[in-house]
C-alpha cells in the first residue's frame, strides 16, 4: 500500500458516499445517470468475485464489501425508492454499446484466460468507460448540480491517483499491470474536460454549466 493508492481509495469512497448522501438527503436523483450507476455496480460485482476466495487484507475485503453495498444501494435508491425523480429523458446513453465491446475485448486481451481473470479484465475495461453515460447526461442537460460535480471530481481523482500509485509501484516494487494502466489512462483522460470546467468554475463558486 502507498499514499497514492490509499488517498485514491478514500477519494473513491468519498465520491460514492457524496452521491449516496445527495440522493438520500435531497430525496432526488435529478442530474444523476442511473445507467452509469448500473455500470459501476457491474464493475464492482465482476471485479470482487474473489471476495471470499482470495483474502488479501481486512482493508481490502472491507472496502470491497462497502463498494458493492453502497453502489447497489445507490442503484436501489435511483430505480426503486426515488424512481419518480429519475430523469430518464436525459439518461439515454446506450450502455449496450459499452458492455458488448468491452466484453469482447476482455475475451481477447487479458492476462489469463480463466473465468475470474476475464471478469476482472471486463471490470477494468468497463470502469474506464462507465462514466460516459453521466458525462453524456450532463452535456445534454448543459449543467450539473454542484454536489454532482464534487462527486465527479472525487471519482475522477481516484483513478488519477491510481496512475501515480502505478508509477510508484513500478519504481519501488517492480509491479506493472499494462491492462490496468491503459484502462486507467483512458478513464482519467475522459475526465479531463470535466476537470477543466470544475477547476475554472466550481472552484470559484460558480455553477458547472457547459458552454451551450
Amino acid at each position: 500500500m502507498n499514499i497514492f493508492r490509499l488517498v485514491g481509495d478514500l477519494s473513491h469512497l468519498l465520491a460514492i458516499f457524496v452521491l449516496l448522501l445527495k440522493i438520500w438527503k435531497s430525496r432526488s436523483c435529478a442530474g444523476v445517470s442511473g445507467k452509469s450507476q448500473i455500470l459501476f455496480a457491474l464493475v464492482f460485482i465482476t471485479r470482487y468475485l474473489d471476495l471470499f476466495t482470495n483474502f488479501i487484507s481486512v482493508y481490502n475485503s472491507l472496502m470491497k464489501v462497502i463498494f458493492i453495498a453502497s453502489t447497489v444501494a445507490t442503484v436501489y435508491l435511483m430505480y426503486i425508492k426515488f424512481k419518480a425523480t429519475y430523469d430518464s429523458n436525459h439518461d439515454t446513453f446506450r450502455i449496450e454499446f459499452l458492455v458488448v465491446p468491452v466484453g469482447g475485448l476482455a475475451f481477447l486481451v487479458n492476462h489469463d484466460f480463466t473465468p475470474l481473470e476475464i471478469l476482472w479484465t471486463f471490470s477494468i475495461y468497463l470502469e474506464s468507460v462507465a462514466i460516459l453515460p453521466q458525462l453524456f447526461m450532463i452535456s445534454k442537460t448543459g449543467e450539473a448540480e454542484t454536489i454532482t460535480s464534487h462527486y465527479l471530481f472525487a471519482l475522477g481523482s481516484y483513478r488519477a491517483l491510481y496512475l501515480l500509485n502505478w508509477i510508484y509501484r513500478y519504481y519501488f516494487e517492480g509491479y506493472f499491470d499494462l491492462i490496468a494502466v491503459v484502462a486507467g489512462c483512458v478513464q482519467t483522460i475522459l475526465y479531463c474536460d470535466f476537470f477543466y470546467l470544475y477547476i475554472t468554475k466550481v472552484m470559484w463558486g460558480k455553477k458547472l454549466s457547459l458552454p451551450a
Partner: peptide, 10 residues
Amino acid sequence: QENAQGHDEL
C-alpha cells in the same frame, strides 16, 4: 500481472 494472490488492488 498476477502475483501469487491474484489482484491485490481494489
